[in-house]
């Protein structure tokens, strides 16, 4: 009697474990199929010409040079404006905040911000930056919208990285007569660098692929720009932050929504492959750099 129960249980066990393994297999297959599809259909469309020529709205054979540059440019501006804010906020939460109603409110606010759909953030940017502040569709409007997307992630990452630094390091600084602020700047932040860098780079990957927050802020087109014009105040300069801009991710969306470009599918698959390759490199870079910095700091060579 007991034996048959055991046998039954053992049987159920094997079947259940098998099903779990099969489902894991399916997930791995989905990812491989996804990456395989993007790279196999996309890479044949990627050529030097593709990477270095501007896009065409109505004709075939357009490239993605402007979109690629725009994505990088807007990413840099976003990081420049969001990192200091997130760093400051993360420092406050990790080092100065004491358990209180106000601290709870701060955390909840950041959670709410992080759960806002990016299209809602984009619409807010449209309402306030594009229309109210009259920044129009521009790199600046887009970068501010992306800042909202980026800040909750980076703030949490900063707080966690700082909290991961042992409390005894803080005490070591305080016991030397250092101010809390000095201790943070000179001891805690340097010790948290591996975590901070990994977080920033990972967030860069997310920003690079973000489109929903941009379509109503940065715009969906790029004017004719010159890469020889280095005057950021000139309207034709590639550096002008007030010009409308279409990033790579937005370009993919636009091509597939308007459907006026004859080779939209080819360009999209090429652009998707480029996008994925850049993001994969970013993920790899963050891992590599994180590990490298960690090893360098902990003195284990």
């Amino acid at each position: 009697m007991k034996n048959s129960v055991n046998k039954k249980a053992e049987h159920a066990n094997q079947i259940a474990l098998l099903i779990i393994k099969a489902m894991v297999g399916v997930v791995v297959l989905i990812l491989m199929a996804l990456l395989g599809y993007i790279l196999i259909t996309g890479i044949p469309n990627v050529s030097w010409h593709f990477l270095t020529s501007p896009s065409k709205d109505f004709g075939a054979g357009g490239g993605i040079v402007n979109e690629l540059f725009n994505s990088v440019y807007i990413l840099i501006i976003t990081l420049v404006i969001s990192c200091p804010l997130a760093l400051g906020a993360g420092i406050y939460l990790a080092e100065f905040a004491k358990p209180s109603f106000l601290t709870n409110t701060m955390r909840t606010t950041i959670e709410v911000l992080s759960s806002l759909p990016s299209i809602v953030i984009g619409l807010f940017g449209y309402l306030v930056l594009v229309i109210k502040f009259q920044f129009d569709f521009s790199i600046i409007s887009g970068a501010f919208a992306l800042m909202f997307v980026n800040i909750p992630l980076l703030t949490r990452n900063t707080e966690e990285s700082l909290k991961a630094v042992s409390h005894s390091q803080r005490e070591a600084g305080w016991a030397l007569g250092l101010s809390k602020w000095r201790t943070i700047l000179k001891i805690i932040l340097p010790a948290a660098v591996p975590g901070l860098v990994t977080g920033i780079i990972l967030s860069a990957g997310r920003i690079f692929g973000e489109a929903a927050a941009l379509i109503f802020t940065a715009g969906q087109s790029t004017p004719v720009i010159s890469y020889a014009n280095w005057n950021p105040f000139s309207s034709t300069s590639f550096l002008n932050p007030m010009r409308p801009t279409e990033t790579l991710a937005v370009h993919i969306w636009k091509l597939n929504t308007d459907g006026i470009t004859p080779d939209a599918t080819q360009i999209s698959s090429g652009a998707s492959a480029v996008l994925i390759i850049v993001i994969l490199s970013i993920i790899l870079l963050s891992r590599f750099l994180g590990n490298y910095l960690y090893k360098k700091m902990s003195g284990t060579k």
Binding site: S166, S168, Q169, E171, A172, W174, A175, L176, G177, I187, P190, A191, M297, S298, G299
Partner: peptide, 15 residues
């Protein structure tokens, strides 16, 4: 704290 220094239970050198 500058005048009254401290050594802790667990060694805590900086990295």
């Amino acid at each position: 704290r500058r005048q009254i220094g401290m050594v802790f239970q667990h060694p805590n050198p900086f990295a």
